[in-house]
């Protein structure tokens, strides 16, 4: 018994060491990125002293903020359209019966299963052959198509776990379809909709392939700018920008954790009170 416990303990220590090593692998490039955003040398290969000039440049250089704005605009609109089409689709296709439904249901998965570059090329061909000139609109259409299956899948999963009798009950009580959808179905599937939206939004923010194929010469998004700067070998500003975004994400995570710890504390206190 003693030996078995010792073995188990050793295994758990090894597992912990493994996970820590893997996270070092995952975070080493992040640390390098942060460190080099403060590096004085433009070459970005060797360390040559601390500086904040790239952060200063970032705030002064209006070009990057414009790019940032375009990226956000594309991400927000693509996410909104994707969430609308994906959610109504998941709810509608659940019970609908029509010819070609199976084909449509399989087609929705296409953007996930085929490589992004194939989708990018194919979408470009449609616009090209129908003489639609490239713009922010074409980028948004391409990105929406890309994220649509993610929204559809998460909402579908949520719907599968929902009790259909609550919708029936709403209809029996005299509510119409629209009211039932907005006040019964939608609140029930909201977590799925939100996680789909979040996934879609973060995907579009970092999307390069589809966007660069569907963009005209004037439109640049953050990933496109990053990629072109990297190819030119100039990137401390980009490091600085990414460090800021990273710090923002970390702060959000921390707030979430603190809030959780606070909630746990409250629950425990409530429980203790109830016991008394």
């Amino acid at each position: 018994m003693e030996k078995k416990r010792g073995k188990k303990k050793a295994a758990s220590v090894i597992a912990k060491i493994y996970v820590i090593l893997l996270f070092i692998f995952i975070y080493a490039p992040v640390v390098v990125m942060i460190v080099f955003s403060f590096n004085d040398s433009r070459a970005n290969v060797v360390w040559s002293g601390f500086t904040l000039k790239y952060y200063k440049k970032l705030f002064v250089d209006s070009g990057i903020w414009e790019v940032f704005g375009t990226t956000l605009l594309i991400a927000v609109i693509s996410t909104l359209i994707g969430v609308f089409v994906g959610t109504t689709g998941a709810v509608g296709l659940r019970s609908a019966k029509f010819k070609g439904k199976k084909l449509i249901m399989n087609t929705i998965y296409f953007p996930i299963v085929i490589p992004e570059i194939v989708l990018a090329v194919a979408t470009l061909l449609v616009f090209n052959l129908s003489n639609v000139s490239l713009s922010i609109g074409t980028i948004i259409i391409g990105n929406t198509t890309l994220v649509l299956p993610y929204v559809y899948i998460t909402v579908k999963a949520r719907l599968a776990g929902m009790d259909p009798s609550i919708e029936e009950a709403s209809l029996d009580l005299g509510a119409d379809r629209l009211y039932t959808f907005l006040h019964v179905t939608l609140p029930a599937i909201m977590p799925g909709v939100m996680s789909g939206a979040f996934m879609a939004f973060s995907l579009v923010l970092d999307e390069l392939i589809v966007t660069s194929f569907l963009a005209n010469a004037e439109t640049t998004t953050l990933p496109m700018k990053v990629y072109s700067m990297i190819k030119k070998g100039i990137s401390p500003e980009i490091n600085a920008l990414t460090t800021l975004i990273f710090a923002f994400c970390m702060v959000c995570l921390l707030i979430y954790l603190i809030k959780w710890a606070f909630d746990v504390h409250k629950v425990k206190k409530a429980r203790a009170n109830a016991m008394l």
């Binding site: 109504t88 689709g89 449509i104 929705i108 296409f110 959808f181």
Partner: peptide, 29 residues
């Protein structure tokens, strides 16, 4: 009957989108 109408309305966006921006592009390719 009402269910039919509402399901058509609900399915329309995703069906149109899939045909226009997934099936058609693949056909063009």
């Amino acid at each position: 009957a009402k269910a039919k109408i509402s399901s058509v309305v609900m399915c329309a966006p995703i069906t149109i989108w899939s045909v226009l921006f997934i099936l058609l592009p693949v056909a063009m390719l």
